[in-house]
Amino acid sequence: MVRIGAFLVGLFFAGWLLISFLVGAVAYVTDPPAKTVEHEFHQAPKHVSFSFDGPFGKYDRAQLQRGFQVFKEVCSACHSLHYVAFRDLKALGYNEAEIKAIAKQWAIKAPDVDPKTGEMSTRDPVPADYFPKPFANNVAAAAANNNAIPPDLSLMTKARHHGNAYIYSLLTGYQSQPAELLKAFPDSKTPEGLHYNPYFANLNLAMAPPLTADDQVTYGDGTKATVDQMSQDVAAFLTWTAEPKLENRRRAGLATIIFLLIATGLAYMSYQNIWADKKKAA
């Protein structure tokens, strides 16, 4: 009984799948799916190398500080960094006094409640505070930015495939729409207020090019602030914000794996040794 039932069920599912396949195949031939503009013109992130690439790479503190400077002077006007606190900047090589000063002088103030009146107010951030959000809420963010909400950047490099290369490519990838695109997809002209960028998923980005000219920021360490350099630095900084424990993790990993290799080697010898008499007998 079981086998007859199984045979019928199997015949039904397999048969109907084959019919579905035929229906799909016919449709595929007679009415092939239209190519989309994203499919044709979207580009994978550019190759860019960082000090933290590879299994043993480390963050370059000077680069992270430069990237932080770019974030502070350019990105932070619109983008929040909500999961990072000022105190975390210690990992970038700042000391406590510097962090205190950075927090106190931060352009956006921390929200607070007036202890006397209970009304909403603001105050200077302290190291324990997370980076204050530039907009009170999503509605305010959308209203101020042509209906596009600037996303939080704390986790951006982990929230995109090849995140740091993606950030770098996006920042350096603004260009005018290629003529071939308009020829092949006349309806896909970049709408007013958006900006063509082949590294963005749907090609048209609401964010205006944020890094437009060399020396837009002035690096304290004398590094020449080209657009390329600033893009790399901020991509490195955002890699750190997304994965602040990267170095601890790799260090712990190396120690763990070395230990495990020795332990497993010993376990193998012990295994061979315990089985020696069985193997010999056989």
């Binding site: 230990f259 332990a263 010993l266 010898m269 012990s270 040794n273």
Partner: peptide, 19 residues
């Protein structure tokens, strides 16, 4: 020597568990 290997293997496992 064989005993030693067994003891070493078990000790390593113990150290790992503590770590």
């Amino acid at each position: 020597r064989r005993d030693f290997i067994n003891i070493a293997a078990v000790s390593f496992a113990g150290v790992g568990a503590v770590a």
